[in-house]
Write a protein that binds this DNA or RNA. Structure first.
Length: 359
DNA sequence: GAAGCGTGGGG
DNA sequence: TCCCCAAGCTT
């Protein structure tokens, strides 16, 4: 059965109604790639300012490839999923050193770039190089599930396969870039998860879900991610203009970002449990005494798979106690140069308390 | 194949 | 308040 009606209804609608997003004025694969990585699991409203910032600081892939990871992370600060920033730098260096500074043009070649998966490769190959590779993202799942009345769970293996095959069948080889963006634009602006605006939809008269009252029921999703609770105790150790910080290592959240020295505990420590905390501090049970100056919290911070419950302890180490070598004393004026998780940024801004404003 | 990875906005 | 979701990728 022909499916040409799909693209014939959608692409003209897109060309008239698309939002004027800055990266759409360019067919430079660097600009498009950057936008696609930024928009992975991220809303346009949140990502746009970052795209502009990156394009200004690193207008070409050679300039990004020459950057320091710390600087890239700092520019990425607040956007989340920080592996994207590290992979971004790796991929830029791949383009420069393995492809002579020119982006590869096929889906298969693009897939070798770090941080470029099936979706991003298809987006670049279709938008920049006119190749008929169909994108399948959250928007596409939703639009196709509703229009074609598909109840297969989108987060199942069978679902991914079914939707990928359907998207591949639907794509318009004469305008694959516009076609792909049209489906995503419809999903983002009209066929929204909650209360879609079916009255404005160019596919309304072909939509199975609308005809059968199944709009709210589709798409179907089966899995729910379980969330783990963690208790973070941050040590605010400051002497004059200097404060101790630590860089997070691999194998956990916020890799490569900076934070205050951290003591993680199995249980929450209450405001009057400083004696319990001291058992976990350098010097431990022996040695001199840590002094509590102030404390605040708990502050809840929600991540995709973890709920952090943080308490901030402003303390003074025992005189003469050697501190861990991983702790680095930095001038408070240089804190703003470090890539910080939002939780730490907020604390150091002092917006959550009367504590000294450090950012 | 499942689990892990941030942050913010909307209903 | 809570839950869902967002132009996904890596291990």
């Amino acid at each position: 059965m022909s499916t040409a009606w799909f693209t014939h209804a959608l692409v003209p609608w897109y060309r008239e109604h698309q939002r004027p997003l800055p990266w759409r004025r360019s067919s430079d694969p660097y600009a498009v790639w950057l936008s696609e990585v930024i928009l992975q699991q991220t809303r346009v409203d949140q990502g746009t300012a970052y795209w502009l910032r990156f394009m200004e600081r690193y207008p070409r892939v050679e300039l990004l490839a020459g950057a320091e990871e710390d600087d890239v992370l700092r520019l990425w600060q607040g956007l989340g999923y920080y592996s994207r920033a590290r992979n971004l730098l790796t991929a830029a260096r791949q383009v420069v050193h393995e492809h002579g500074g020119r982006f590869p043009t096929t889906h298969a070649q693009l897939l070798h770039l770090k941080g470029v998966g099936d979706y991003t490769a298809a987006a670049i190959s279709s938008i920049c190089f006119g190749q008929a590779d169909a994108v399948v993202d959250g928007n596409v799942y939703r639009v196709l599930a509703r229009v074609f009345g598909i109840a297969t769970p989108i987060d199942s293996t069978a679902g991914r396969k079914e939707f990928r095959a359907l998207a591949a069948r639907l794509i318009d080889p004469t305008a694959p870039g516009d076609h792909n963006q049209a489906v995503m634009e419809l999903g983002a602006t009209v066929c929204s998860p909650k209360r879609p605006r079916c009255g404005e939809c160019p596919l309304a008269d072909r939509c199975s879900a609308l005809a059968h009252g199944r709009i709210e029921a589709l798409p179907v999703k089966e899995g729910r991610t379980q969330v783990r609770e963690r208790h973070f105790n941050y040590l605010h150790v400051q002497a004059g203009e200097r404060i101790y910080v630590q860089q997070r290592g691999p194998g956990d959240i916020w890799q490569g970002l900076w934070e205050l020295p951290l003591v993680e505990t199995d249980e929450a420590l209450g405001p009057r449990s400083f004696n319990k905390l001291t058992a976990h501090l350098p010097g431990g049970t022996s040695g001199g005494k840590w002094t509590l100056v102030d404390q605040m919290g708990p502050v809840k911070h929600v991540l995709s798979h973890q709920h952090l419950i943080a308490r901030f302890w402003r303390v003074i180490p025992p005189p003469g106690l050697p501190l861990p070598t991983s702790w680095r004393a930095v001038d408070t004026s240089t804190l703003a140069q470090l890539a910080l998780p939002r939780l730490l940024e907020r604390y150091l801004e002092g917006t959550a308390s009367e504590s000294t404003r450090l950012l």
